[in-house]
Design a protein around this nucleic acid. Structure first.
Lengths: 336, 336
DNA sequence: CTGAAAGCGCTAACAA
DNA sequence: TTGTTAGCGCTTTCAG
């Protein structure tokens, strides 16, 4: 049934079904005009023989039905779910995905992209790439490309990303809604999206009439960065009663810093993070966080790519996805 | 220099260098006997034209210089570093890696494997696959295959895995060395390696003369599983003074359970995990854990595959890598 | 609606 | 040492 002798080719199928090579070829990719009878015969022969089209041969002459997904960082759990969404969307499309990773190094990322192109992937999905803008444009000129999790300056690319500005506002509004006024922010430094989150924080504070309480400590998207940022925050006289950290890792760092100075969460200080990673949902941590629809980001990006593959001339589109606040145990009403 | 007109073929290079196709072909893959002069000319022409061999065409006739890496679970941070190791080892080999993922579903994992084989990957690295043993053997008969993080019953495969038995013993010995006797274990249930870790725990307890204190609660490789296991443990009269959890996630669950009943770590109970993931190193958690040389696992697996690719007849080898205990803040001497 | 034939870019005999 | 010549398995005109 399965056998691992020499691979069965289109010719074998043709002979088995008493037709010519080309007829098989036509049938194999849903031909428009083939008699129902022959089609059946071919399909039967193919499955009898366990025929699988040779992707390489196919690719040489035309299509590979393969798209490349470039992960900037395999370590970031954020992407795993995006990839799940991509695969979900691809499942019934006849396309397959291959993944590559740049290990958050621009050079290797570029190599990885070239490598996928070598394999003749018909399209590319770039997940928060770190390579410079021009490189991305160059790639997108060679092959349909979708950018995820990063804003292109140019805007000549299909782009799917979370609305970090809105998400940050949600976090601040949640905190303010609990009665907090001295709400500080530990930023994400140079991280992708960190700028937007910071701006969202500042704008929200101002529009809530809390502009006088704006207080930002430089941090990063890591445990360590959050810890240091919070430390600095806590040295300056009156501590805030609530802190919005740029992501969950930073939030956990803030948590540590608060514990060290004897402040408890949420009794003394409320704390919110961003990204709603598994970290946030750990019961030991149970961090209020802002969720991004990761899976949907994946689905949409694959969908956009498929569209573009079908209609090469479609206009590039920018989709900003709405985040959602997930309240947990680290935020509570301001104690009087 | 780069231009994105039609791709340049071997024929273009040949014309540009005034030689024949085959000479170029020879040179391109480090021919043994070509005059230095021509070789130079060809190489120059190639780089002038920006020639890149067409992997597909190459693959049809022979080699693809591509290996497939199958991740059972993109979400598990354990694998990210293994992949780093693989890429490191591949970097100078002329081989490239493409990744696939099964999203911890046997069916999709199998599809992913077929997909890579379609692409004519010359070898496969399977990272803690969930597909059944026979499928793995079947794959390994079609193409050189290296198994990582899982013990093959048959042993007809190159296999790289951590020595979970030894690692568990280390954890127990560490705890015992701190004066603990009532050391309990929250198991990893059906997780890969969980059985070995449990056995290691039991054996160590016995050989330390602590056989009478053996106490195992069924858990899983998740936060939730650890929480439930610990809860059960704590219902049974005298609580243990130390707990060894099957992995870091479970350990964090245990932490939560301990907190809930008012036991503090490490004052009342010492706690050790396994895998030394980023979770363990978070300052807020700072969990004593057992480290596996993930990056080296990756390097070795790629090395093994490269070897086998070079010498098809090499004997399958089983490498058991030594783990290492990383003491942190959750373990302390037994309080009197 | 079906079949024959010509390549896609490359490698691998085989000649020269 | 170098050039010539067949294909690898498939898609795709172009005739029947």
């Amino acid at each position: 049934m399965d056998g691992d002798g020499k691979p069965v080719t289109i010719l074998d199928v043709a002979r088995h079904a008493n037709v010519s090579k080309s007829l098989v070829s036509l049938v194999m990719r849903g031909a428009p005009n083939v008699s129902e009878e022959r089609r059946r015969a071919v399909l039967k022969a193919a499955s009898d023989l366990g025929y699988r089209p040779n992707t390489l041969a196919r690719g040489m002459r035309g299509r590979t039905y393969t798209i490349g997904v470039l992960l900037s960082d395999l370590h970031n759990p954020f992407f795993a779910e995006v990839v799940d969404g991509i695969e979900e969307a691809l499942a019934s499309s006849g396309f397959r995905a291959v993944l590559g990773t740049g290990s958050r190094d621009a050079g290797r990322e570029e190599e990885a992209a070239e490598s996928m192109l070598d394999l003749r992937t018909e399209g590319l999905i770039l997940l928060s790439p770190v390579i410079p803008e021009e490189k991305i444009s160059a790639l997108s000129r060679r092959v349909p490309t979708v950018l995820v999790g990063r804003h292109p300056r140019g805007g000549t690319l299909d782009t799917i990303t979370g609305d970090d500005l809105a998400g940050a506002k949600m976090a601040v509004e949640h905190l303010a809604g609990l009665g907090h006024e001295r709400i500080a922010h530990v930023s994400g430094g140079p991280g992708a999206g960190a700028g937007q989150r910071r701006r969202g924080y500042e704008e929200a504070m101002r529009s809530l009439g809390l502009g006088g309480h704006v207080q930002v400590a430089e941090g990063s998207f890591t445990d360590e960065g959050g810890y240091r940022g919070a430390k600095r925050l806590l040295e300056d006289g009156l501590p805030p009663t609530a802190i919005f950290a740029a992501n969950d890792f930073a939030a956990v760092g803030v948590l540590t810093a608060l514990e060290e100075v004897g402040l408890s969460v949420p009794e003394d200080v409320s704390l919110a993070g961003y990204d709603n990673t598994h970290l946030a949902s750990l019961r030991h941590i149970s961090l209020t966080s802002v969720d991004q629809p990761r899976r949907e980001m994946g689905r949409l990006s694959a969908g956009a790519l498929l569209n573009r593959l079908a209609d090469h001339s479609a206009r590039p589109e920018l989709r900003l996805l709405a985040p959602k606040l997930v309240p947990r145990s680290t935020t509570a009403p301001l104690a009087l």
